[in-house]
Design a protein around this nucleic acid. Structure first.
Lengths: 188, 188
DNA sequence: TCCCTCCTGTAGCGACTGCTACACATGAAG
DNA sequence: CTTCATGTGTAGCAGTCGCTACAGGAGGGA
C-alpha cells in the first residue's frame, strides 16, 4: 500500500505534530500543512484519518513501552531500576509522550473510539512486565501482583500530578519515598 | 441573565449527558435534542458552548470534591477514612464522574482550552485537603506534604487502573495495601 | 388596547470536517 | 513510442460546527 518509506516519514512527522497539539481535535488539513503536504495526500497514503492516528499512536506507545522495558529490564536492584525509570519518565524526553498518553487514556475512559481499544493495552503490558520482573527477583506470585499494581499506580499517579501541577520537587521526593517503601515491602 | 431555574435544570441535564458521552466531541445540537430543546436555546441561556461546559464541569468537580471532603473530614482513624473514601470512589456512584474527570484531565494536560485551567484545580484542592488533615492528625508539615502526595497519587493511579482494566479485585486489594502502608508510614 | 419584556422556532451564515472525483505529470517496462 | 502504475494538485461534495438574524408568541402593566 503506497511507498512505505514516504509513509514512515509522514507518520514520524505526524507523531511530532500530535505530540505538540494532541489528538482530540486533530484535523487533517492543519496537520498536512505542517507536514508540507495536503490532506489529499494523507488520505492517499493512509486510507483514512483513523488509520493514520492508529499508526501514530502505535509509534507513541512503542516509545513509552521502550522506556519502561529498558529501565525495568536493566540490571541492578529493584530500587535502582525504579529510580532510573522514574528519572526517565519524569525527564523532558518522555514528557510530551506522557501528556499524549494521558490524553488518549482519558478519551478511552470516556469510550471514544478508537482509543478505547488501544489505551488499556499499554497499561496491562506495563503491569505484566512488572509482575514478571518481581517474580523473577524472587517475590511470590500473589504478592508480585499486588506490589506491581501499587507500583505502577503510584508512578502513574505521580506523573499525572507532576504534569498537572508542574511541582517537580514534590513529585520527585514522593517518588523516592514510594520506591524505597515498595522495594522493602516486596522484600527484594 | 435569563431564568436561573431553567438554567439550572439545563445544566443538570447537560451534566447527565456529558457523564454519558464525554466532553471531547460534545456538540450542541445532539445535546439539545437529548434535553428536549434546541441549540438555539442553549446558546440563549448560557451565551456560548464554552460557558455551558464551564458550568457543567463546575458541577461535576463539585460532586467529586464533595465525596473527597465528606470521607476525609469524617471521624475515625486515617485508615478508616481512606478506606471509606476508596469505597466511595471505586463504587458505581462515582464512576461516571471519574471517567469524565480523567477525560478532562487528559485534555488539560495536552493544553486544550478551557480545560487546562479548571483541571489542575481539583487536584491541588485534594492535595491541600489531605495535607491539612494529616497535619491536624499530628504529622509534621514536611512529612505531611510527602505522604499526601503519595496518597493522592496512589489512589488516583489505582482508580485509573480500575477504570481502564475493570479489575476491581486487584485494585481493591492494592488500595487496601497502600492505605495500611501509608498510614503507619505517616505515623498516625 | 398597546407596549414591552421574556422566551422560542425557523432559517441560515460562514467556516470547517473527512473524504473523493478527475485531470495530469512522471518514470519505468514493454 | 506506447502503456500503465504511482503519485499529486485542484476542486468540490455532503455534512456538521458554533452562533446569529429575524419574526413571532405569551403574558403582565398602563
Amino acid at each position: 500500500m503506497s511507498e512505505p518509506a514516504r509513509r514512515d516519514e509522514l507518520v514520524e512527522g505526524a507523531l511530532g505534530y500530535v505530540l505538540r497539539h494532541g489528538v482530540a481535535d486533530l484535523s487533517l488539513r492543519p496537520l498536512a500543512a505542517a507536514l508540507g503536504t495536503s490532506d489529499r495526500m494523507l488520505v492517499y497514503h493512509f486510507g483514512s484519518k483513523r488509520r493514520l492516528i492508529d499508526q501514530v499512536l502505535d509509534r507513541a506507545s512503542s516509545h513509552l513501552a521502550g522506556i519502561v522495558l529498558d529501565e525495568m529490564a536493566a540490571g541492578g536492584t529493584m530500587a535502582e531500576r525504579l529510580e532510573k525509570l522514574w528519572a526517565r519518565l519524569a525527564g523532558p524526553e518522555a514528557e510530551p509522550y506522557l501528556r499524549l498518553w494521558f490524553e488518549v487514556q482519558g478519551l478511552a475512559l470516556m469510550g471514544h473510539a478508537p482509543y478505547d481499544e488501544s489505551a488499556p493495552r499499554l497499561l496491562r503490558a506495563w503491569l505484566e512486565l512488572s509482575v514478571n520482573i518481581l517474580t523473577e527477583v524472587g517475590v511470590p506470585a500473589a504478592a508480585a501482583r499486588r506490589v506491581a499494581t501499587v507500583e505502577v499506580a503510584a508512578i502513574q499517579g505521580l506523573l499525572l500530578d507532576l504534569l498537572a501541577t508542574g511541582d517537580r520537587e514534590r513529585a520527585a521526593a514522593a517518588a523516592g519515598d514510594v520506591i524505597t517503601r515498595i522495594v522493602d515491602w516486596g522484600g527484594a
